[in-house]
């Protein structure tokens, strides 16, 4: 089997959330750390859409930021076709930056309000020195056409566009360096549903046309179901299940995945009654010991309170649950 396009192994990120030094001394508090991502490993094949789902505090955005180099990992390795991403190595980063781009959640914040659309889209081309001056304008026009806007829009400012059109501009910017990998961080959660459909369709069309590989970050299971081939489910910074999209929805292995699926409203009015989900996500600064999900888990066992389960193969993919297989990691 060929090498995966993107490999993430043992990715961990801790944030120092301590109070300022003086407060710590006066209030006799220790340093506090928030583990936003803990030992996360997955791989994405070329041309596929891999989705990371999770609720707030699951670490999905932190992982996305580490992959595009906005954050430095505390531990772990990220590699594209075997080449490790290291934000401190400018030479390889220069090459990799052209190949990977990012689409952000809020199209009202991701475009500089003082820049013309043409300059926004051309910024990656100019920064990475991909084209000479006179070639840029026709390229911008081509990109605008690609995302369903008109070449004349290059002279306008972002505030002249609706949310959906702005997200198209952001996509055009992401495409301008001709990348093969795009990290999409909640690309439609700020948009209305009818516009969301336009953007999701556009993303799929572009994927077919250019053979793009997507990492889709979302909290919306129906969007994830619609877009992705494989899905990773995150809970409090840990990957609890990875599986093929279809199988994950039909045979969820981890109780948390099952709970998330149950919480999705039933639009088809099939009479499926969604189950009450108990409890809320704990504070990620002091997560529960053992399996972080155990206080909310309907199938909790004594062993769950002490050992941290690791991902291991299941019938459908991988899951980190004692019910889906035996092994425990060493208690930290």
């Amino acid at each position: 089997m060929a090498e995966p396009f993107l490999t993430v192994s043992g990715l961990t990120r801790r944030f120092d959330v301590s109070k300022p030094w003086l407060n710590r001394v006066l209030e006799r508090e220790d340093r506090q750390f928030l583990t936003a991502a803990a030992d996360v490993s997955f791989a994405i094949e070329k041309g596929e859409t891999f989705a990371l789902v999770g609720e707030s505090g699951s670490g999905k955005s932190t992982i996305a930021k580490m992959i595009v180099g906005l954050l430095t990992p505390s531990a772990g390795r990220i590699a594209i076709e075997g080449q490790a991403i290291d934000p401190n190595d400018p030479a390889t980063m220069r090459v990799l930056r052209r190949r990977m781009q990012m689409i952000f959640q809020d199209p009202f914040a991701s475009l500089n309000p003082r820049w013309r659309v043409g300059d926004i889209i051309a910024e990656p081309i100019r920064t990475l020195g991909l084209m000479s001056g006179s070639d840029i304008a026709p390229e911008v026009a081509r990109l605008l056409g690609l995302v369903g806007l008109s070449a004349k829009d290059a002279d306008k400012f972002p505030h002249e566009f609706s949310g959906g059109q702005r997200q198209r501009i952001a996509i055009a910017r992401a495409l301008s360096s001709r990348p093969d990998f795009i990290v999409c961080d909640e690309p439609t959660s700020a948009l209305d549903v009818s516009v969301q459909a336009q953007i999701l369709n556009l993303m799929r069309d572009l994927q077919d046309e250019f053979g793009l590989t997507y990492l889709l970050i979302s909290h919306d299971l129906s969007v994830v179901r619609h877009m992705s081939k494989r899905i990773g489910v995150l809970y409090l910074g840990r990957l609890v299940e990875v599986a093929d999209a279809k199988r994950l929805f039909h045979e969820p292995q981890h109780p948390y995945t099952r709970m998330l699926l149950d919480a999705v409203p039933d639009l088809a009015l099939s009479g499926r009654r969604r189950k009450q989900v108990s409890g809320e996500i704990p504070n990620p600064i002091s997560p529960p010991a053992g399996c972080a999900f155990h206080p909310r888990c309907p199938q909790v066992m004594p062993a769950c309170k002490t050992g941290v389960p690791v991902l291991h193969a299941t019938a459908t993919g991988m899951a980190a649950c004692i019910l889906a297989g035996p092994p425990f990691a060493q208690t930290p």
Binding site: A197, N201, H226
Partner: peptide, 20 residues
């Protein structure tokens, strides 16, 4: 209604309303 992706059946393309 058509533009909302659902869990139950995977459509290849969502119905989209043009414009905003």
């Amino acid at each position: 209604m058509g533009s909302i992706p659902t869990l139950d059946h995977a459509a290849d393309r969502l119905v989209q309303i043009p414009g905003a």
